[in-house]
């Protein structure tokens, strides 16, 4: 099978889950599953963060950057400032050889 054909198949298995979820908006759900959906963002976002920080070979730097970035967002409410501040903290530690 050609590489292009494999890529088309990769597309064919990636698109349907994206589309299917968007189509279930009008399905009536019992309270338990409504609560479930309410917790999906916080749960997914936490699952995206922690392995990228603690599972990284450079985890001490990333942990420090996360603490700094998290504090900035908490105090300022500004996302871009948190990212830049955390990135600056990361580079400060890395430049100092930590």
């Amino acid at each position: 099978m050609s590489i292009a054909a494999v890529i088309v198949l990769m597309w064919a298995v990636t698109y349907p889950p994206r589309w299917l979820g968007l189509n279930l908006g009008r399905v009536k759900l019992p309270p338990f599953w409504l609560a479930f959906l309410n917790f999906v963002p916080v749960s997914v976002i936490a699952a995206l963060i922690v392995p990228e920080v603690l599972g990284s070979p450079e985890w001490p730097r990333r942990l420090f950057a996360s603490v700094v970035g998290g504090l900035i967002v908490w105090r300022s409410g500004n996302l871009a400032l948190g990212i830049l501040g955390g990135f600056a903290a990361y580079w400060a530690v890395r430049a100092l050889g930590g």
Partner: peptide
């Protein structure tokens, strides 16, 4: 060193959501 940007961005989204013990 940009690998840290992805978790930082999501952390910035997560922090304002953290209201209440269950969350």
């Amino acid at each position: 060193g940009v690998g840290v940007i992805f978790p930082l961005a999501f952390l910035g989204l997560l922090v304002p959501m953290l209201r209440g013990r269950v969350t």
